[in-house]
């Protein structure tokens, strides 16, 4: 099996406070992974660190992507390698339309960028996600509902076509219809050349996007690793059960 992401003994601080306390985690190509854990356990910290957020300081350990050490790369370079993070809280950028933004990033990521291809692709991907043309002409996330923001993240994912896809609570606060659409988008992109890491509190989305592996994080550490069944058990018993063990 090919390892796409390897996180080795990762320690991360925010504003001088240690949040991640020695994370070891390996993701394989072609697999769907779930990361679960109580609020505040450090899941977003972990994935933001993988994406290269400057606020999260790696004090020990390293991150390898396809065998290459990326611990010190800037976020844009990581994106260029094929890492994508669907944000838990996407930012609102006034005055920049979704389509302009997508065009700008697609130009950065795709050396063979062609405008007509881009337009065609955008239309196709919009239709998969049931996003109107009107919405891609609106300013990026400005005045979007929670569901629209998440759909918009998935649209970016489909357009940019990354290798490692990280979804940070993309399902939170979605109604069942939106959830299905997002699952459809993820299903569309997934193949054996890609890898997904999905952060969620709920088993619900895992019924549509079936994980091969489930990781549980508590207080900045991965405390348990298991198969698909782990998510179900968790839903039934809650995190208290693990903490007791």
């Amino acid at each position: 099996m090919t390892k796409i992401l390897e996180i080795k003994n990762l320690h991360v601080e925010v504003k001088g406070k240690e949040i991640l306390k020695g994370i070891n985690l390996t993701l394989d190509l072609g697999k769907i992974n779930a990361l679960m854990g109580p609020n505040g356990s450090g899941k977003s910290t972990l994935v933001n660190t993988v994406m290269g957020h400057p606020k999260y300081v790696v004090t020990k350990g390293k991150i390898l992507f396809n065998g290459k050490d990326i611990t010190k790369l800037s976020p844009d370079k990581r994106a260029k390698l094929g890492i994508f993070l669907s944000f838990q809280h996407p930012r609102e950028i006034s005055g920049v339309s979704v389509s302009k933004f997508l065009k700008t990033s697609e130009k950065e990521l795709n050396p063979k960028f062609s405008f007509s291809e881009f337009k065609k692709n955008l239309k196709e991907k919009r239709e998969i996600l049931e996003i109107s043309e009107n919405m891609t002409e609106r300013y990026l996330n400005v005045g979007f509902s929670g569901g629209e923001k998440k759909k918009n993240e998935i649209l970016q994912m489909l357009i940019l076509n990354p290798k490692l896809i990280i979804l940070d609570e993309t399902d939170s606060g979605l109604d069942i219809d939106s959830l299905k659409i997002i699952a459809k988008g993820v299903g569309e992109i997934m193949n054996k050349e890609k890898c997904i890491l999905i952060i969620t509190h709920y088993k619900r989305i895992l019924e549509y996007i079936k994980p091969d592996k489930v990781f549980i994080m508590i207080k900045g550490k991965i405390v348990l690793e298991g198969g698909n069944k782990l998510a179900e058990e968790l839903e039934k018993k809650g995190y208290g059960w693990i903490e007791k063990e």
Partner: peptide
């Protein structure tokens, strides 16, 4: 803002 920059950079845009 740092957060806005990070968001855009995470999509491949240099700073």
């Amino acid at each position: 803002g740092e957060e806005d920059l990070f968001y855009l950079m995470s999509r491949g845009l240099p700073e």
